[in-house]
Design a protein around this nucleic acid. Structure first.
Lengths: 122, 122
DNA sequence: GACATGTGTCAGACTTTTCTTACATACGAC
DNA sequence: GTCGTATGTAAGAAAAGTCTGACACATGTC
């Protein structure tokens, strides 16, 4: 049951980039850490973590875009709409060799301008 | 021979943040991928990767600061100073549980202002 | 000397990310 | 109705990251 490469999707360059970008922020690590204890809804999470709700919303967006977190809007018993988030059970394993294998799947570096004869660049 | 937690140093919150921040860039992934094939000096690396040397220098700084890369200034046979970089053989493994364990080692979120009675935040 | 190679670094522009403040909606209870 | 909870989003400021172009130095060859 352990050790899937990267649970939800195949590990490609862009996926690794999104995942690392999402993990490269203390707030988002805290959020993921909190969600590792179980699902939670955003207003509660904002209170628990001591951050503003719009800010938390933004970070959750980024985590969700990276596939590290999953959100689901539910209707509570009393009828109020509550959005629960949970951590996707991912397992990200990165080594220099893994990265080398992913390099070919990276987006093109940048339009290499023709007629480029700069001295320091080429 | 495989599976060290995180080769060079213990995996703490700040270390993970630095590592992910360093990995969250296509140029730096390319650099690491190239160095996975073996050590190389920066001017050569800049040519191979098709990027300017100052830019490569900046990215190498960040990779080195994160402990993912190691540089060594050497004196070539003909006397020229050449700086070689090599990839540190790290193995970064991240899961929600790992993150939860690291949360306590993260830097303080932000000075939680006393007397905070904002409506949206609390 | 001029020219090639190698090194490092700075200043400024540009882009992206981060964060707050303010607004909008909907529902239930009083 | 008002108050409390929940949701989402937009505008703008502030900070961080990215990148280029121009410097500086040293060495070896011509």
């Amino acid at each position: 049951m352990p050790s899937e490469e990267f649970s939800p999707q195949a590990l490609t360059g862009p996926v690794l980039l999104a995942a690392c970008g999402a993990l490269a922020n203390p707030h988002r690590l805290r959020i993921l850490g909190a969600l590792a204890d179980g699902r939670q809804y955003v207003s509660r999470l904002a209170r628990d973590l001591g951050m503003s709700r719009p800010l938390l919303h933004m970070h959750l967006q980024k985590l969700q875009a990276a596939g590290l977190v999953r959100g689901e809007l539910e209707l509570a018993e009393d009828g109020r709409a509550v959005k629960y988030f949970e951590a996707v059970p991912f397992a990200l394993e990165v080594t220099p060799q893994v990265i080398r294998a992913l390099v070919p799947t990276l987006p093109d570096p940048a339009p290499p301008r023709a007629g480029d004869k700069g001295k320091d660049t080429e």
